[in-house]
Design a protein around this nucleic acid. Structure first.
Length: 887
RNA sequence: GCCCGAGUGGCGGAAUUGGUAGACGCAGCGGAUUCAAAAUCCGCCGCCGCAAGGCUUGCCGGUUCGAGUCCGGCCUCGGGUACCA
């Protein structure tokens, strides 16, 4: 070894240097090349909020590891990046700060791109686009027109949250405790005519195709299956007694027709036409109005207290016309599912049981586990349909049968007696895409008084958003724009009005993956490019998109294929999916006492109250991690005596201020440290908690690898090459590292790959440097280490590679192959259990047979002692794994 | 409410198909180096117990020669719930 001090690794200098080298060699530029297998890796593109956060770093590092690994394995890799750029936050910024949504969005994109480039991701930036580019949304409008013509689009009424003060439609997120988030006014439900994609027509096909998605997580397929919600059941009509004209029959859908004899009431949604028809009764009107005050979200409806009102109407039981059931309006019946009307069977449905207990309606048992079982009391009896039960009031065959069989028999019986018919229903509803907002893709349709609703002429696309708009927080800016909506009808040429709804941003993200294959095409896609690059081989993103985004994309790919925008093979666009966890951090807050006045909450001043009528309240204030310090086993606001409350790690969010800015980490430690940290420790599908100590440890390790490489390079390889047992041991360890790290990367076990790389680094640094042939062995091992680390920490890997005289760039070097001859193990250590507890271990040659192992075990001192002269009852031998002696 | 996950030392986690629970890392402790410190290197490190030994993968029960892993019943936390993206 020479006496020189090792050079220190300086990421600030090294990282830009290699980024420039990759740029100069155009390493990440993707060009179609039919001679090589392609690989398309895609991470869910970001919303341009303004800053990248650790979640982005983790997501894109995972994709980058895959992209760099696949490139090293000889694939022609496509790894693009873009921006999901339409959406509400831009409009909120416009309202709050007076900036134009477009200016705000493009400034954010510039800022985020500038933060992302220093991360050294292997992205083909020449394919970048934002969904708010007219070149993108214009093509989206063209496809909308194709889909309109092909029958994939429809218009119908839908219910929205309406803020009566701001005169605007609210997103579910903007409804807090049933009140508008800005105005504080109680939200109303309002029905609007909206544009829909007819995704429900594809329910069966989307369901069946899930079976083919073998490289998707099972949980995502399950969630989609349940979301589509195929169910088979009976639809029939009750004959009503005393109902208003036109409501002589009440259509009901049930998945449990076998429980029809247990019906004790019928119930309809407050939004059911019959419920509306009865609003002449002030009590009914008041009840319905009350129900409509809650938000429109399923969560709000389903978690609300179960309440109802008796309409006084009756219906006849179809199997027993002498029996009549009361008709209730109940807040838990969804108008969107089935027919908006049900019959209640409290004995076998917990929600119905809770309801009848509250309102004193009868409970009628239909079946029991066995005839002697007690009657239903506090909990409904709801066994799986596959279970055999005994029907007490059977009308459909045998008394003892499974629920499934009974349902089928009940449907057959009802069909034979003209009571109803078996139907298949899906929970999946059509996809409403209309948004009454400015910052979205305009729906390219014109309303003409003469021709009706007409698609805009292709020559007029894109229908651009107007620039001169004002944002005041009320109404739809496009609707209020003085001239934008005035146009001429593309059919008759007469004056007409533009559609002022824009599209749901989920539309934008439902085809961007296809656009990346030909981002500058003058048609939505280029079929040759799509044919080469599709499908996405590996898609990576958050599990929060498991249902909506992925289902909409699957629908869109099918619709695009049928309108000629994608090849047939792309109807399932994502071959493999990986859902990664979030990056979390503790959150910190302090509380302070304050006072508030009722008028602060929008209440009017009461008669006896003066303007200073106030009440105490506690205000919570969040603080950034760097404002907090630990002292005497407690946390304080830095430099003060104020105690800080610590919230367990949650998703990093601006509102909780528990964010760590990747830019700060890059400034301090470099991009490789950030990349190494987010790949370490936590399995990628699970949440990872960001800690300052972890980041420092990552930086230290990378420095250590550099020192080791530098030292090995100084010593160099002796001319004789690898020789000697110790040098051979190190070489074997290198081959094992290749085998294990490769397997871990293939299996998305990045944390395991990192652990193995730590292990291998330890082995390498502890190998005796002066053993014979060790110089060559160490140079070989160090180069392997650099290559195996390259997908995670590409800059350090290039520097080490260059220091060791590696040829060209690691980024373009082929992935190392493990030599099977170097992997064989001579002997194995077998644990010996006695009665299932480990008591000894024996070393046997690899592949030793049962007899050899048995004789070794029975001769083992510990086993002999425990046997104490007796014969074992049983000897379980699993060759190469374990031995269990049963006494 | 409903659907889907997750729970292992002080902490993040590891553990082919049921086969040595705790790899690797963080924190901590001890030592070397140093005038001292930083940095670095070496060692120890689940819990109880002086020890022999016993206990231990959210809780309760089961299957098995053997359970973190399989089955049944809970608890807690997280994601989604159709206009957040």
């Amino acid at each position: 070894m020479t006496g020189e001090a090792p050079t220190r690794y300086d990421p600030r200098a090294v990282e830009p240097k290699w980024q420039a080298a990759w740029e100069a060699a155009q390493v990440f530029r993707a060009e179609a090349d039919p001679t090589r297998p392609k690989y398309y890796v895609l991470e869910m593109f970001p919303y341009p909020s303004g800053r990248i956060h650790m979640g982005h770093v983790r997501n894109y590092t995972m994709g980058d590891v895959v992209a760099r690994y696949k490139a090293a394995r000889g694939h022609n890799v496509l790894h693009p990046m873009g921006w999901d750029a339409f959406g509400m936050p831009a409009e909120n910024a416009a309202i709050e700060k007076g900036v134009h949504p477009g200016a705000w969005t493009y400034a954010n994109i510039d800022a985020m791109r500038a933060q992302m480039k220093p991360m050294g991701f292997s992205i083909d930036w020449s394919r970048e686009f934002a969904t708010c580019d007219p070149e993108y949304y214009g093509q989206q409008q063209a496809m909308f027109l194709d889909m309109l013509e092909a029958g994939f689009v429809t218009r119908k009424a839908a219910v929205v949250n309406w803020d009566p003060v701001d005169m605007t439609v609210l997103a579910n997120e903007q409804v807090i405790d049933g009140k508008g988030w800005r105005s504080g006014a109680p939200v109303e439900r309002r029905e609007l005519t909206q544009w829909f994609f007819r995704i429900s027509d594809m329910a069966e096909e989307l369901l069946e195709a899930l079976d083919g998605l073998g490289a998707w997580p099972e949980k995502v397929r399950l969630m989609q299956r349940n979301w589509i919600g195929k169910s088979q059941g009976l639809q029939f009509a009750f004959e009503t007694i005393g109902a208003p004209e036109g409501f002589e029959r009440l259509e009901v859908f049930t998945t449990r027709p076998d429980t029809l004899l247990g019906a004790s009431f019928a119930a309809i949604s407050p939004d059911h036409p019959l419920a509306r028809a009865l609003e002449g009764d002030p009590e009914v009107a008041a009840f319905n109005a009350e129900c409509r005050r809650a938000g429109t979200s399923e969560e709000a409806l389903e978690t609300a207290e179960k309440r109802g009102i008796d309409t006084g109407l009756k219906v006849r039981h179809p199997l027993d016309p002498q029996r009549t059931l009361p008709v209730w309006i109940a807040n838990f019946i969804l108008m969107d599912y089935g027919t908006g009307a049900i019959f209640g069977c409290p004995a076998h449905d917990q929600r119905d049981l809770d309801f009848v207990r509250r309102y004193g309606l009868p409970v009628i048992d239909v079946f029991k586990a066995d005839p002697a079982a007690p009657d239903v009391a506090a909990t409904a009896y709801v066994p799986p349909k596959s279970q055999t039960v005994t029907y007490l009031r059977g009308f459909a065959g045998e008394r003892a049968m499974t629920g499934d069989a009974a349902v089928a028999a009940a449907v057959a019986y009802c069909e034979a007696h003209g009571i109803g018919r078996g139907v298949t229903r899906y929970r999946l509803r059509d996809w409403g895409v209309s948004r009454q907002r400015y910052w979205g893709c305009p729906i390219p349709v014109v309303h003409c008084p003469a021709c009706g609703t007409v698609g805009e002429a292709r020559a007029n696309l894109p229908v651009r958003l107007p620039e001169d708009v004002r944002f005041e927080g009320s109404g739809n800016p496009l609707e209020r724009h003085p001239t934008w909506k005035e146009t001429t009808c593309p059919q008759c040429g007469g004056p007409a009005r533009r559609e002022t709804d824009t599209m749901d941003t989920f539309v934008d993200s439902s085809w961007y993956f296809a656009r990346f294959t030909a981002p500058h095409a003058t048609t939505p896609t280029d079929l040759a490019a799509a044919d080469y690059w599709m499908n996405v081989d590996q898609y990576i993103g958050g599990v929060e998109h498991a249902i909506l985004h992925l289902l909409y994309s699957r629908f869109f790919a099918r619709a695009m294929q049928r309108t000629g925008h994608l090849p047939a093979k792309a109807i399932e666009p994502f071959d493999a999916l990986f859902t990664q966890g979030m990056v979390t951090h503790e959150a910190y807050y302090t509380t302070e006492q304050s006072s508030a006045q009722l008028k602060d909450f929008g209440f009017e001043q009461g008669p006896g109250e003066t303007s200073d009528t106030s009440f105490p309240m506690t205000i919570m204030r969040y603080h950034y991690p760097e404002e907090v310090e630990w002292r005497d086993g407690a946390s304080f606001l830095k430099g003060t005596e104020q105690r800080v409350e610590v919230v367990p790690p949650t998703k990093m969010s601006k509102s909780k201020k528990n964010v760590v800015d990747p830019a700060d980490i890059i400034d301090r430690f470099g991009a490789d440290t950030a990349r190494w940290f987010v790949m370490s420790d936590s399995p990628p599908e699970r949440d990872v908690e960001w800690t300052a100590a972890g980041a420092e440890a990552a930086a230290k390790h990378l420095q250590r690898v550099w020192r080791l490489a530098d030292e090995i390079a100084r010593v160099g390889a002796e001319p004789g090459g690898v020789a000697g047992e110790e040098a051979l041991d190190l070489t074997r360890a290198a081959h094992r590292a290749i085998r294990d790290v490769t397997a871990d990367i293939e299996a998305f076990g990045f944390n395991r790959a990192v652990a193995r790389l730590y292990d291998f680094t330890n082995t390498l640094s502890r190998a005796p440097a002066d053993a014979p042939g060790m110089g060559a062995a160490r140079v070989f091992a160090m180069r392997i280490l650099a290559q195996l680390m390259a997908p995670m920490v590409p800059h350090l890997a290039e520097e080490v590679w260059a220091r060791l005289g590696g040829e060209g760039l690691v980024a373009t070097a082929p992935w190392p192959e493990a030599d099977p001859a170097m992997l064989a193990e001579a002997s194995v250590t077998l644990p010996v259990q006695v009665n299932g507890k480990r008591r000894a271990e024996i070393v046997v040659p690899a592949g030793a047979d049962r007899a050899t192992i048995e004789s070794l075990v029975l001769a083992d001192a510990a086993v002999v002692r425990l046997l104490d002269g007796a014969q074992p009852k049983k000897l379980v031998v699993v060759p190469d794994r374990i031995v269990n002696v049963v006494l």
